[in-house]
Each structure stands twice: as C-alpha cells, then as structure tokens.
C-alpha cells in the first residue's frame, strides 16, 4: 500500500509542476524582467525632424518619468502600435517624456526615416546605430517598451505591441 501511495504522491507532484508549466507558458515573458533596476543613462543622436524641439542629442531626464520604446523599421507591430503611443504622448506630454529608440536597423537609415514619416510620431526619436543601447537595456526584441520612474528605476517592461489600456495603466502608476 505504501508503494501505491508513493506512486500517487510522485504523480501528484509532477502533475502540479506540469500544470504550472502549461498555465505559465501562456503569456510568459521571454526572460527576466529585472524590475527595479536602475536603467542606464545614454546620450544618442536625435533624428533630424525632432532636433529643433529636442536638441541634437537626448539623454534620460532627471526627476521625470520616461517611457522608452524600442522599434525597428522592418518591424510590423512597431508600426501598428505607433498611433497608440502617439495618442498617449499627446495626452501626457507635460508630465512624462516619451523617447523612441530606433535599434537593430544597421544600414537602414532611409527606411527608419520613412517609418517616422509615415507614423506621424511627434515625440522624440533617437538612433541606436551600434545596437548597444538595446543590449544595455537587456532588450529581448522589438517592439519593447520600458516604463522608468522619476528616480530612474524600472517600473515595468512590455515586450510586444502595447495596447491603450496597458499603456494607460502604466502611465497612471508612473505618475503616482
């Protein structure tokens, strides 16, 4: 009888583990999110169309919450989420800085410019020409959006295209 009990217990433990696996694998982040990490500062050249308003290079501001969104010209979902980001920027521009980062686009300057033209984005975009900023941020892919608090720590990161609801929820939390 003890042996039967062992079989049942082991099976139950395995069942628990694998059921966790099934449920967790849906919508799991690709890698660790490292929330609370102090995000590295950077100084990158700004795309020509934004230089008048934002200067030639842009860095992380101090004391103000920032949304950093990575994109590439060949990335379809990046294009799809552009209006969402733009709408949020227009609403929150006094309180939160939005910075777009063009990454993983070596040799595609023309296409990157075209992307910005078509999207009608008015928040500043910088060029990550050597892709190092992406690596510094622990980027898993594009699009990926980072929400950074006033004190420079990471509140949340969202891999994949973001919806208005998700964006608003994070922004509200940033402003608290």
């Amino acid at each position: 009888m003890t042996r039967l009990l062992i079989v049942v217990v082991v099976t139950a433990l395995l069942a628990g583990l694998f059921w966790f696996g099934i449920t967790a694998s849906q919508g799991r982040a690709i890698g660790p999110t490292q929330l609370g990490r102090v995000m590295p500062d950077f100084s990158r050249p700004v795309f020509a169309r934004y230089q008048a308003e934002f200067g030639e290079t842009l860095s992380l501001p101090t004391g103000k919450p920032v949304v950093v969104s990575f994109w590439a010209s060949w990335c379809g979902p990046c294009h799809a989420q552009a209006p969402t980001l733009e709408a949020a920027w227009r609403r929150y521009r006094d309180q939160v800085l939005f910075i777009g980062v063009n990454t993983q686009d070596r040799g595609n300057e023309r296409q990157a410019e075209a992307f910005l033209n078509q999207s009608g984005i008015t928040f500043p975009n910088v060029k990550d020409l050597d892709n190092r900023l992406g690596v510094d941020y622990g980027l898993f892919g594009v699009p990926e959006t980072f929400f950074i608090r006033r004190d420079g720590t990471l509140q949340h990161r969202h891999a994949g295209p973001i919806t208005t609801a998700q964006l608003s929820a994070q922004l509200e939390e940033l402003l608290q």
Partner: peptide, 16 residues
Amino acid sequence: FGFFILVMLFSFGLLA
C-alpha cells in the same frame, strides 16, 4: 498532460 497522468497512475500503480 492528462494522458501522461493516466499512464503514470495506471502503469506504476499496477506495478506497485
């Protein structure tokens, strides 16, 4: 998943 649990219980249970 269900089949695996079934196989575990049936075969190892019988062996036990």
